[in-house]
Simulated assay, not measured.
Amino acid sequence: MAKGCGWALGLLAGCAVVLVVCFVIAVEAGPRASFVVLALALLNLCGYLVGHDALRRRQLADEEGRQLARERDHVKRTVDFVADPGLTEEERLAVIDCFIPRLGLSAARSPYRDRFVLVPELDPGARALLERARSAVMSVYTSEAMRTRLLDGLANEVLLPRQIWEIALLLRVQTHLNEEQERAMRGVVTPELMAVLEPQQEALRRSVAAVTARVESLERYAHRVQEADAALRARAALDNNDKYRALLAHTDDADAMRSLEASGDALEQTLAKSVREAIEAGQTLAL
């Protein structure tokens, strides 16, 4: 507001100066010279107004961009949802914008509603399964084996988000079908009704069992990766064996020296086996 008043006062002052100058020139040099000066002044004034308007628009756009970035960051921290990893960055931002009240959008009416799952909308059992899957994936991403590129990082970056998305999608369908079953069971339950519902319930149980098996596969993979991490830590500790050999040399303990060397050889084999099993466990996820 203060800046706007400043610009307005500056504009008025400029107009006053132009009028005074034109009057002086008209008196001294005649009306023709005064007209030329006035035309030039008007051109400068138009340029000033256009420049000010462009600057103001840019400032407003920058401020809007900063505010939108803050609001999007808030949504990422406070709204728990799983998005389709196939979304483009623009589409992902459009999903996030649905949860910003100021924009007047609605998640329920979003054109991408089928491409994200709101975790709070899942039933407790479904949320628990999804949390297990997420925890398994996070343990893989934060593992030392992943950091040191012993695992197929590119495959994990594609495969694991896809696994989480597909699990979340199935859990949402199961939640809706569970609600449907609960509504159907309200009131009087007849043999005819049960004849319809029992096959549906069996199909639902089979689906839940299949999703649970997928989550358990992720957990097994994560466990293999953790075992590989443990082997890596052991390998790092093995590098300290020289210090212990020196200590034993001073104490003249040949048996302990041989034991250290044997443990080192065994550890190399364990490390290779652990990493190989982790990679094989990851490959089975894509089957």
Rank of each mutant, 00 (worst) to 15 (best):
R233G: 13
V27L: 08
M185Y: 07
R206F: 03
S106N: 07
R205F: 03
P161V: 03
T251R: 14
R113I: 06
R276M: 05
R32V: 11
V95S: 04
A222Q: 02
K3I: 07
R109H: 12
E28T: 12
A203S: 08
C98Q: 09
I25W: 07
P111T: 02
R134A: 09
E202F: 02
D53R: 12
D84K: 00
A128K: 09
R66A: 15
R186K: 13
E166V: 05
H74S: 15
L260Q: 00
A184T: 05
P101I: 01
R276Q: 08
T190A: 08
L232K: 06
A83S: 14
L204V: 04
D84R: 00
C46N: 02
A254L: 06
E268W: 01
E91D: 08
V75F: 10
A210E: 03
V211P: 00
Y141M: 07
D97Q: 07
E280N: 06
S34H: 00
K76R: 15
L38M: 08
V140I: 15
V117M: 06
D253E: 10
A126K: 00
L60K: 14
L105E: 03
A272T: 10
A61L: 15
M194D: 09
V188E: 15
A209T: 08
V208E: 06
R147D: 04
E28A: 13
Q163N: 09
E90I: 05
L238A: 15
L55P: 04
Q226R: 11
L160E: 01
A61Y: 11
A155N: 03
A54F: 10
L247V: 06
E89W: 01
K76E: 15
R127S: 03
V37S: 12
G30S: 09
R258G: 01
E131Q: 13
L12E: 08
T212N: 13
A83C: 14
S263L: 11
N178I: 01
P101K: 02
C15P: 08
V173G: 07
T148D: 07
A29K: 15
V18G: 06
A168G: 02
V75C: 13
Q174C: 11
T88S: 12
A83D: 04
L43N: 08
G264V: 00
C15G: 15
S274K: 01
V117I: 14
E90W: 02
L204E: 11
V117Y: 01
A26K: 05
V36R: 10
L267M: 10
D152F: 00
L55I: 10
D229A: 08
F99E: 06
E202G: 02
V75P: 11
F23W: 10
I100Y: 05
M194E: 11
V50A: 13
V140D: 02
G153K: 07
E28G: 04
R70F: 12
Q163G: 04
L247K: 09
A237R: 15
I100K: 08
C98V: 01
E63N: 12
V36H: 05
P101M: 02
L150D: 08
G282L: 01
H74V: 13
R134P: 08
L287T: 09
L68D: 05
Q283R: 14
L193W: 13
L129K: 04
Q67F: 04
R113Q: 12
V225C: 03
I164T: 03
L151E: 00
T190V: 06
